[in-house]
Amino acid sequence: MQLSHSEFALAPAAERRRFVLQARPATLDVAARALGLGDTFAMLAAAAAGAVTALRLGPQEVLLLLDPAGADDGLSALRAGLAGVAHSLVEVSDRQVGLDLSGALVEAALASLTSIDVAVAAFPVGMATRTLLGKADGVLWRTAPDRFRLEVWRSFAPYLSGLLDEAARDAVF
């Protein structure tokens, strides 16, 4: 059966440049200030300012999503702030893609793929974490009560979109 757009929709996310920043926690705090994102990146949470969105995936790791229009400014601010401090900043734009998932069935579809609790009480808007979906790693970020961004490695995207579509159809019955 065909699901309506309000029930479940899966669409490629807007174009972004993607970077993984890895460093000691104190250095990540410096990066947060350099990007104008506050004094620290809160754990397992998203923060956004201007062209930059940052997802803190672990004590030592932040995933940066940059709007191509303002990416260069954000990157120069970051590089200036981290000059002379040990860190690793790697562009992963070609490795990774984003999928926007939305609709009333989005929780049900995700719940059939991952072991984490995706109810809004346990996974509030703004939370972001890496987890296992089916047999593939993915970063899950709740952008609205009925909307998630899924960031996955490019070659996993057809597998995960297929599984999510099936799971959403199953959830109707």
Binding site: L57, G58, P59, Q60, E61, T129, R130, T131, L132, D137
Partner: peptide, 8 residues
């Protein structure tokens, strides 16, 4: 190791 999470 939290291999499919924070990686720590």
């Amino acid at each position: 190791r939290h291999a499919h999470g924070c990686n720590r």
